[in-house]
C-alpha cells in the first residue's frame, strides 16, 4: 500500500472533478459531480467521494492541488494552478507523445500546444462565447427535444449534414428552428451542429498552430459526432482518453505528486545535513 496519496480537484462552473493518485502516480479513483452552483460544497463532495471509494484517510493525502474556475475558493489546498497547466500535464501523463490538447468543456474551450517535454507552449482560450463549448450543444439539445447523450450517435448515423451558418448560439438556435420548419431531419441538424462546433474549435486551435498527435479532452469529447467532425476538420486523428473529463484533475494530482516528491527530497537533504 502506498504510504501517501495526492488529490487533484478541477472545480469548473458546471462540474467538479476529483482524482486521487498514489505515490507512484497511479490513478486510484475519480469522481465527477455537477456543481449545482455550489462550488465549495461540490469540491468537498468529490474529494470525499474519492476518499471513500478507496478507503484512504484524509491524513494520508499529502497534497491537494486545485484547478478550474473555483480553484482559489477551495480552502484546504496546497496550491492552485490554471486549467491550462493542469490539462497539459494530464494529457502528457496519459500519453507522453501528445503535442496538442483540445479541451471542450461545459462553458469554455481551450487549445494548448505542448513542447516536446510536455510543458505548456502557446495556448488560446474561448471563454467569452458559448458557441464552441458544451453549452452550445446543451441549448440545441433542448431546442430539438432530444437528450444531450443522444447527439453523438445521431450525428454519426446521419448521412446528411445540415449547414448551420450562424456563429452565435442564440442565432444558431433560430436557424435550427428554421431548418426543422423547412423539413430537415433532426439527425442531419445534429450533424450540422457537431460540425459547427468543430469548425469553431478549429479556429481556436489553428490560432495556436495545430501539431499532431492531438488529444481531445473535456466533457464534449464524449460526443462521438463532435469528435468525428473535429477530426475531419483538423484532418487529423484525435486521441480521446477513456475519461476525457478528468484530465484536468489528473494533471493537477500529478503536479501535486511532483511537488510532494520535491519537498520530500529537500526535507531529506536538510535532515542529512543536520
Amino acid at each position: 500500500m502506498s504510504d501517501y496519496f495526492v488529490i487533484g480537484l478541477d472545480i469548473g462552473s458546471a462540474t467538479a472533478k476529483a482524482v486521487l493518485v498514489d505515490n507512484e502516480g497511479k490513478k486510484c479513483a475519480y469522481a465527477v459531480r455537477p456543481t449545482g452552483g455550489r462550488l465549495v460544497q461540490s469540491a468537498e463532495d468529490v474529494k470525499k467521494e474519492v476518499l471513500s471509494k478507496t478507503g484512504v484517510v484524509e491524513e494520508s493525502v499529502k497534497a491537494i492541488i486545485t484547478t478550474g474556475y473555483g480553484r482559489d475558493i477551495v480552502q484546504n489546498k496546497t496550491k492552485s494552478l490554471t486549467e491550462i497547466t493542469c490539462h497539459a500535464k494530464g494529457a502528457y501523463i496519459t500519453m507522453p507523445d501528445i503535442r496538442f490538447v483540445i479541451d471542450i468543456g461545459g462553458q469554455d474551450s481551450k487549445a494548448i500546444l505542448l513542447e516536446s517535454d510536455g510543458q505548456v507552449g502557446r495556448f488560446e482560450m474561448n471563454d467569452k462565447c458559448a458557441a464552441g463549448t458544451g453549452r452550445f450543444l446543451e441549448v440545441m439539445a433542448r431546442t430539438l427535444g432530444i437528450h444531450l447523450d443522444e447527439m453523438g450517435d445521431m450525428a454519426l448515423r446521419s448521412e446528411k449534414c445540415s449547414k448551420i451558418s450562424s456563429t452565435c448560439t442564440v442565432f444558431a438556435e433560430s436557424e435550427v428552428i428554421s431548418l426543422l420548419a423547412q423539413g430537415e431531419e433532426i439527425p442531419s441538424v445534429v450533424s450540422g451542429l457537431c460540425r459547427a462546433i468543430a469548425e469553431r474549435v478549429y479556429g481556436l486551435a489553428s490560432r495556436v498552430g495545430i501539431t499532431p498527435p492531438i488529444m481531445m479532452t473535456g466533457g464534449v469529447a464524449k460526443n462521438k459526432g463532435v469528435v468525428s467532425w473535429l477530426s475531419k476538420v483538423l484532418k487529423q486523428e484525435l486521441i480521446v482518453p477513456e475519461e476525457p473529463q478528468i484530465i484536468g484533475a489528473l494533471g493537477a494530482s500529478i503536479i501535486g505528486l511532483e511537488w510532494v516528491k520535491k519537498n520530500n527530497e529537500t526535507m531529506n537533504k536538510i535532515t542529512q545535513n543536520i
Binding site: 494552478l81 490554471t82 505548456v120
Partner: peptide, 10 residues
Amino acid sequence: GNRIDAFMER
C-alpha cells in the same frame, strides 16, 4: 486574470 496566471505558469 486566468490568462495571466496560465501565461505566468508557462
